[in-house]
Design a protein around this nucleic acid. Structure first.
Lengths: 105, 105
DNA sequence: CCGTATCCAAAGAGATACTG
DNA sequence: CAGTATCTCTTTGGATACGG
């Protein structure tokens, strides 16, 4: 299960679902993540074989991250967890709303 | 994603996949988990709506934990993550074995 | 642009002892 | 049986500053 460990790993994997992305693109894509944490998570996911890192020797250097085929296999799992979570949130909101109904405007 | 947060939560959910279990049954089922951690995770998962806790007033008391319907929806996701992880481990072992081949007995 | 270094705080988890 | 109470250690993450 450590494949998805870390607060941001699922979002990082998700942000690579549509193809290779650069460091700064991923960072912009995930509001709130710091460079340090993003670097740490990317290194961890690389070591585990979930994504690959390739440096293109331009100036300044370009670094691209891409899911491996095994990384891509995690996408459906992430999606279904997010779906369950969304339903839980909606259900909670409904329970709360029925306690305190909105007055019609 | 916090639905699966905590080192042991996926295993706890998994151990309830075949129906309701008592505290001590879950604990026996998951070697290495302490009572404190199990209690903490169960409370967390209950609060999030993944499982339910019911006390049967016998003496000594019986406490049963059971997945909610939303909890059950997490099972396929857990299974597919475990499958990817297993393939990663097997692939790594293969790579390592090809470096240091076993000598035929 | 793509990071590393440092320091700090908070959360999880392990071990152990104790309880209604 | 099914927990709670401590205490300690480690891991993560946030903030900030700096570097090739």
């Amino acid at each position: 299960m450590s494949l998805l460990s870390g607060l941001w790993s699922p979002e990082i994997i998700w942000s690579l679902s549509k193809g290779a992305r650069r460091f700064s693109e991923i960072r912009r894509n995930i509001p709130g993540i710091s460079a340090k944490v993003l670097t740490g998570r990317l290194r961890d996911l690389e070591r585990r074989g979930v994504l690959s890192r390739s440096v293109i020797p331009t100036s300044p250097p370009t670094v691209e991250y891409e899911l491996t085929s095994l990384g891509e296999e995690l996408l459906p799992a992430i999606q279904s967890i997010v779906e369950v979570g969304t339903r839980l949130i909606l259900r909670d909101r409904q329970l709360h709303d029925s306690d305190v109904p909105l007055k019609p405007d």
